[in-house]
Simulated scan of single mutants.
Amino acid sequence: MNKILTITIALLAAASISGTAVAQTQPTPQSSMRKNLQNHDLHNTEREVFQSEVSLEAGASFPRHSHPGEEFIYVLKGTWVYQFDGQPPITVKAGETLFIPYGAVHSAKNVGGETGIELATHVIEKGKPLLTLANEEQK
């Protein structure tokens, strides 16, 4: 299946899914983009899986935020630095993975010279937004 057809099918599927995470608009900085790829209920009716492709322009960062569930990252392109509150930064390059625990406040920055792309898979609580921006008081 060619890439255009795959993307079209993914977008049509995302548009037809009534899951909360797909239906809600999420804040994203101008230098980043989130393309929803798929969203499915799990056997456990309190959770759903949400998968997206996230891109971040060279030198750009995504602000501190958290998710109502676990996040599994696979970097497809570029070099990303993730900063978790109270921890040293973690650098993840293309072909590497990162696990983000439930509710962990974190930010991401593309430290490479090209647009970075990651595959983000979230296992989140149903009925909650995919992400919540953190305020400075949460530091």
Rank of each mutant, 00 (worst) to 15 (best):
G69F: 03
T132E: 11
E96K: 13
F72M: 08
E114F: 03
Q24V: 10
L11K: 15
H106S: 03
M1A: 09
F99E: 10
V123N: 13
Q26L: 13
W80H: 05
S66Y: 04
F99Q: 06
S66Q: 05
I4T: 12
G113F: 01
G86F: 06
L119Y: 03
Q26W: 04
S66A: 06
A108C: 04
S52T: 15
V54I: 15
A120L: 03
S61G: 12
E57I: 00
E136F: 01
L12V: 07
F72A: 10
E70M: 10
T25Q: 15
I124H: 04
F50Q: 07
L130W: 02
K93P: 01
V123G: 07
L76R: 08
T28C: 07
A21N: 10
V123C: 12
L42H: 07
A10I: 03
T45W: 00
P63N: 07
L133V: 12
G78Q: 04
P101Y: 09
L5Y: 04
L131M: 14
L42I: 11
V75D: 10
S16A: 15
S55K: 14
Q83N: 13
I7S: 05
V92Q: 09
S107D: 10
D41T: 10
S32Y: 01
Q26I: 14
A120H: 01
G112S: 15
L133P: 05
S52Q: 15
S55E: 14
L37K: 05
K35W: 04
A108G: 15
T8Y: 02
F50Y: 15
E136N: 06
S52I: 14
L133W: 12
V49Q: 13
P89C: 07
S18N: 14
Q138S: 14
P29I: 09
A60P: 09
A108V: 12
T132V: 12
N110T: 05
V123W: 07
K77V: 09
T97I: 08
E118V: 06
K126Y: 12
T79S: 12
Q30H: 08
K77P: 01
L12F: 12
P89N: 04
T121S: 12
